[in-house]
């Protein structure tokens, strides 16, 4: 996935001189996860900016650049530090277009690695996508693999509004996937049906997709359940149509999220199923998630995140209801 995102950055910077990359250690050091590898050498320090250590300053200046017609791709080194920049996200990215009735807008991408599983220090393991998605005027996307990461990043950079691009760092180097030669563009707001099925819909995103697919193959191996898997990809806007179509077909659904259980994206998915497919349901919509506690330090964190077994149990419970 690191290479997929990196490829999109190279292609977009090549295509459009207005695109620039900025953040802490993104230049000479090529980013702490090497997502910005090769950019500094190729495009120079004016277009690949090593900024001072200040999240609000990074996003605040990126807002200014975007208002002046540039297309900055700003990095928060870890999502856990991005909250220092929330003021500009809520105060300006989300509302400059509304505030000026379209006369000014903030087309920028705010990249951030998020999520658990890399045995890192406190503040390096959380999944707070719902927090960003709650802001009107902001788009929030989460890739799940190298190919869709590249296509989504390309779309995010070309999008006329602010896109929060959350990178599940557990998936950064988890697996390989071929990407096409030609740049791909993915519609922001479209979910992807990873596999079709007729008895149960499982909806997930980010690093949870791999775990979900593992759980699905276990369930399918043990009993002949036909499971449909949806990779949300875009948290906001959310692809209600694809969700509704699937759940109306299967009548059963489980939502899997890495984030804490309450007030999250899963809650929103379930609310939309309630709006669009309630009468088709054969069972209550299941929810597999983390607990509503502060993420424990990494010695204990694996035990806290939803695992394959949790997802499997959730699926069985809903299938057997």
């Amino acid at each position: 996935m690191v290479q997929g995102i990196n490829l999109a950055l190279h292609e977009e910077m090549q295509r459009d001189p207005k695109v620039l990359v900025m953040g802490q250690d993104v230049g000479v050091n090529e980013g702490v996860f090497r997502v910005t590898a090769g950019l500094h050498a190729k495009f120079g320090e004016t277009r690949v900016i090593d900024t001072p250590l200040a999240e609000s300053g990074i996003l605040g200046t990126a807002v200014g650049m975007a208002l002046a017609g540039l297309r900055p791709v700003a990095e928060m080194q870890f999502s856990g530090f991005s909250y220092l920049a929330l003021g500009h996200l809520e105060g300006h990215c989300s509302r400059y277009r509304a505030r000026t009735h379209g006369a000014l807008s903030v087309p920028l991408v705010l990249r951030m690695p998020y999520g658990g599983g890399v045995r890192a220090l406190e503040h390096h393991s959380e999944s707070r996508e719902a927090m960003f998605a709650h802001l009107p005027g902001i788009k929030v996307v989460i890739p799940s693999g190298p190919r869709n990461a590249r296509a989504l990043m390309t779309a995010a950079i070309q999008d006329p509004d602010t896109v929060v691009f959350m990178e599940p760092k557990h998936s950064y180097r988890a697996f390989r996937e071929d990407v096409p030669e030609e740049p791909e563009l993915m519609d922001i707001g479209k979910a992807h049906v990873v596999q079709e099925g007729s008895e149960l819909t499982v909806i997930t995103w980010g690093a949870m997709l791999r775990k979900t697919l593992e759980a699905v193959s276990e369930v399918q191996a043990k009993r002949e359940a036909s499971v449909e898997v949806i990779d949300l990809l875009s948290i906001s806007p959310m692809d209600t149509k694809t969700i509704a179509k699937s759940v109306r077909k299967t009548g059963r659904c489980v939502v899997v999220q890495e984030a804490p259980r309450s007030f999250g994206t899963a809650s929103e998915v379930i609310a939309r199923i309630n709006d669009t497919a309630l009468m088709y349901l054969e069972a209550p919509v299941g929810r597999v998630a983390s607990f509503d506690i502060v993420t424990p330090y990494f010695a204990r964190e694996q035990n806290y995140f939803p695992g394959v077994e949790d997802i499997r149990r959730g699926m069985i419970k809903t299938l057997d209801y």
Binding site: L20, T46, R47, S56, G57, L59, G60, T61, A62, V63, G64, M65, A66, L67, A68, G69, L70, P72, G87, H88, G91, H92
Partner: peptide, 19 residues
């Protein structure tokens, strides 16, 4: 309206002029 939030915006606009 948000006090001081325009200051980094100004720095970003200024960077774009230099850019």
């Amino acid at each position: 309206v948000i006090v001081a939030s325009q200051i980094p915006h100004a720095a970003g606009v200024a960077y774009s002029l230099k850019y």
